[in-house]
Nucleic acid binder design. Structure first.
Lengths: 342, 342
DNA sequence: TGTTAGCACTCTATAGAGTAGAGTGCTAAT
DNA sequence: ATTAGCACTCTACTCTATAGAGTGCTAACA
């Protein structure tokens, strides 16, 4: 598509712009990148590149900057893949070791790690739990008036809540109710425990309607809580260090958008795609981030894609570095999750 | 201290500056606030107020702005207390109803509510759990290789984790170990469960050292997790709407500071003080927020002060509104917590 | 004696003019 | 095909002038 020299020049332009955020001119390219050709030749080639749509000029007679198409070509063809250093990998593992206690902290800390390493905003979409199945519930004693209700699922997520015991109910009865519910719901996924099933159950076990209701409510709450998928953000402050976000209004716009969790979920969901995916500028569906780029990667648990990690930043981002980090998370996060599930 | 007219003028200056963020001149005061005196008289009074240190001039011949001392006098003496409207109270209660599932969500949502209502950054210091006592732990079956370990405390906070069952151990044995631990630790506060007690326990129950270790480790983790008190932040984006934070560097400084949880805890802890407390400008110990004001309020559960809520913003903040909201939380948050503990 | 009108003065923020510098495109020479 | 040279363009910055808001002081007034 492009001859070798054009590629080299385009690469120089993108590399330079990524690191300096300033338009770059022919003289500078000739000086900094030893291509063995004069500024004049570079100028001619740049005129071609501009005509082809790979670069643009902010104003007549300023240097060139990459266009979206230019970034795309850079990402697809020019970019040199990097490797994570052993040092970095150790750092990450130690970080998890030191900071993670409960499984949901994995997501928060992953977001932090990614944003630290990429110096951009990171987003982690936690797995949706609708597929996980109800195992059993159990009442544990708490005090005279109250009991602890524990719900165990096969994914290892455990929900618990303190409930008030109705005055006319003994702990034995509680256990009977639990047994009744368990025999009905055991093995069902949260998706399958629809209101129909719950309704049936209600008619079935009559003895202590009120208590049953509370129990079912809590199951339903757990169900609802797990169904909505949660997005963890990291490094929003990093935005302020980027030259393209020196304008407070711009920052406010983006941050306000990031507060809408539903929107985030929608952005993060990668239908069908697998691995690391880059979306540049207008390629983004949402107008709020059309002057940004996003790099996303799925991650798996037991071979199943369960969630997404992503980095959001200006189109002038370090694609190489960021893709490397996300590639790593893509193949590594599953293990981490398994490890901390125990 | 100040005669009535000076008070009125000072109040006008503070009120106006709070709402406009612009220095205010004598003519404007005369026009907007009908005090029945001419600009010239106001100028004389303002000269006095400046001499007394209540107001200052950013530059010769610009309008006046309140000084820290001026704000202090305003807060202590001039300010007209407001009341929460029934409407607002309902809104808050509905918000809790709709959004809170687990008890720790109360804090996050409280932070959100406060920041929405005050249009400033809010901070909520969750109760420290070191005083709560260990009740018992119990193993629940999970699958052939694994079990669920549930730790119940008397405050109603329940910790759970899936652990691997060593191959040579039966579920019966697990229960014996649990009984052993429970008889030793029951009723002890997390503070009292020091490494000494844990050490004793270790020497005591020899049979399955490895499993015991895991269990103790988890207790210790729960202990550590509850001991460090957590700060929930809300409305950091609001900062960007304030005229005093149009400078990106300033925003970055403050937000970076707010990422340090330890520092936040320290700022939030109000030794000995009770109710709503206002700290203006340099009155703050931490240099990072010395051009900010902070309004803090304690909240109680069962008569005991357990945590703090606070609002952080420019010294030019709506003290009246903010103090009203925090006063409300001061007297109301305890009930909310109790309600959602069940 | 307290209040007010008038006025000269100060300081800022804004707009306009001029300039240096970086970079380009074109032409002609190599 | 490549490159040196050069006129041209556009921006970013500095410098200057100006309008406007607000003050403090003085003198007049009730």
């Amino acid at each position: 598509m492009l001859d070798e020299r054009k590629c080299k020049i385009l690469q120089a332009i993108v590399d330079d712009y990524i690191s300096t955020a300033e338009p770059i001119g022919s003289r500078t390219i000739a000086r900094k990148y030893e291509l063995g050709i004069s500024p004049a030749t570079i100028r001619n080639e740049m005129a071609d590149l501009e005509l082809l749509g790979y670069i643009e000029q902010p104003h007549t007679s300023s240097g060139r900057i990459p266009s979206a198409k230019g970034y795309r070509f850079y990402v697809d063809t020019l970019m040199s893949p990097q490797k994570m250093t052993v040092n970095e990998i150790n750092l990450i593992n130690n970080w998890y070791m030191a900071k993670v206690r409960r499984i949901d902290e994995v997501f928060q800390e992953t977001a932090k790690i990614i944003s630290r390493m990429t110096r951009n905003i990171s987003m982690v979409l936690a797995p949706q739990q609708s597929q996980c199945a109800f195992k059993y519930l159990q009442f544990l004693p708490f005090d005279a008036q109250r009991a602890v209700l524990v719900i165990v699922t096969d994914s290892g997520l455990i929900e618990n809540k303190i409930i008030e015991i109705p005055e006319d109910t003994s702990f034995k009865e509680l256990q009977q109710i639990a047994a009744g519910i368990n025999s009905r719901l055991a093995g069902l996924t949260f998706d399958a425990i629809s209101s129909t099933v719950l309704g049936e159950l209600k008619q079935d076990i009559i003895p202590n309607q009120r208590l049953l209701n509370t129990a079912l409510e809590i199951i339903q709450q757990a169900l609802a809580g797990k169904k909505s998928n949660k997005v963890y953000l990291g490094g929003t402050t990093q935005l302020l260090s980027q030259p393209e976000f020196q304008d407070v209004e711009k920052v406010k716009g983006l941050l306000t958008m990031l507060e809408e969790e539903r929107l985030l979920c929608d952005i993060m969901k990668m239908k069908g795609q697998e691995g690391v995916v880059v979306t540049i500028g207008h390629e983004n569906k949402y107008s709020g981030i059309q002057d940004c780029s996003m790099v996303q990667a799925t991650y798996r648990v037991d071979g199943q894609v369960v969630g997404t990690v992503a980095v959001l930043g200006p189109t002038r981002m370090e694609y190489g570095k960021i893709m490397t980090v996300l590639e790593f998370m893509h193949s590594h996060l599953g293990e981490v999750l398994k490890k901390y599930k125990l």
